[in-house]
């Protein structure tokens, strides 16, 4: 269980990474924390010709507050984000989701942007980004562009990132006053991939629910605020709409039930914590 051969480049500047991406395109893989990529390399599921290491790009190791959002640079680890003092206040959804991601040892290396690029359908961070309606910042030698979360993650392990592009930052919309945010997930064991992960945002007369682990990518639905009976119907429709599939850990039905049952709970929690 050893990786296939590849070249390796340790980048000191963003530009050098972009040059390598321009040169190698789809045959290059960026490694930042490598907590998903390394396992796939070891299993030879992924066989890049070159691994471009951006972990030491200190210029991208920033958390920045901007108008209406918090921006995480590409080399900010999940642990660093957890340790950012304003996290709970500014992006409470991310603060609630982070402890569910793997284990503290993997969060010490795994990055926010790496998780978004990996685009695992059960992952917490893409789910939060999609639910909050955040953006990612992609750069290539050609241009820099900002892509909305729902346009970015297009399917199973698949994103709209072009082969010569690198994600340089992710922007999570900041908490709005009077809004509520809540996160829940169910997994077999602590730190496992979610069977179903749910993120809820309540505010401005709307309910928004994001669901991970059921479809090929995070699914987000928004409703006008409503009473409990109507919400139950709405969640039921949403569950059926998502469908879900069986795997060895849970059935499609179980996933739908969790959308209904935990969906109701997480929305309730979001309502409760409106500030």
């Amino acid at each position: 269980m050893k990786p296939a051969n590849f070249d390796y480049a340790r980048c000191e500047r963003v530009e050098s990474a972009l040059d390598l991406l321009a040169e190698h395109g789809d045959d290059a893989r960026i490694i930042a924390g490598g907590q998903s990529l390394m396992a796939m390399l070891n299993m030879r599921l992924v066989r890049p010709s070159i691994v471009v290491d951006i972990a030491s790009l200190d210029e991208l190791a920033y958390v920045k507050e901007a108008a209406g959002y918090v921006e995480f640079g590409a080399t900010v680890t999940q642990a660093a984000a957890e340790a950012w003092p304003a996290l709970r206040k500014r992006v409470p959804l991310v603060a609630a989701a982070l402890p569910h991601i793997g284990h503290f040892q993997t969060r010490n290396r795994g990055t926010i942007c790496g998780s978004l690029c990996h685009a695992d359908p059960s992952s917490e961070l893409p789910l939060c980004l999609a639910t909050l309606g955040g953006d990612v910042v992609l750069r290539s030698r050609r241009k820099k562009r900002v892509v909305g979360a729902l346009d970015f993650q297009i399917g199973l392990l698949s994103t709209a990132k072009q082969p010569d592009e690198m994600m340089v930052a992710a922007r999570y919309p900041a908490a709005r006053s009077g809004w509520g945010y809540a996160f829940r997930e169910i997994s077999r064991r602590h730190g496992d991939f979610a069977i179903v992960a749910l993120a809820a945002v309540v505010g401005d007369g709307k309910i928004r629910l994001g669901v991970g682990g059921v479809d090929d990518k995070p699914a987000v639905h928004e409703w006008d605020d409503m009473d409990d009976d109507s919400l139950a119907d709405a969640l039921n429709d949403f569950a059926w709409d998502l469908g879900g599939g069986d795997d060895i850990h849970a059935t499609a039905r179980y996933r739908r039930e969790m959308v209904r049952r935990l969906g109701k709970k997480v929305i309730g929690e979001a309502r409760q914590c409106r500030s």
């Binding site: 490694i31 390394m38 070891n42 010490n108 290396r109």
Partner: peptide, 13 residues
């Protein structure tokens, strides 16, 4: 100073 998985790192890193 941070606990990590050595199997998820390359020696060159």
């Amino acid at each position: 100073g941070k606990a990590v998985r050595a199997c998820l790192m390359l020696a060159v890193q």
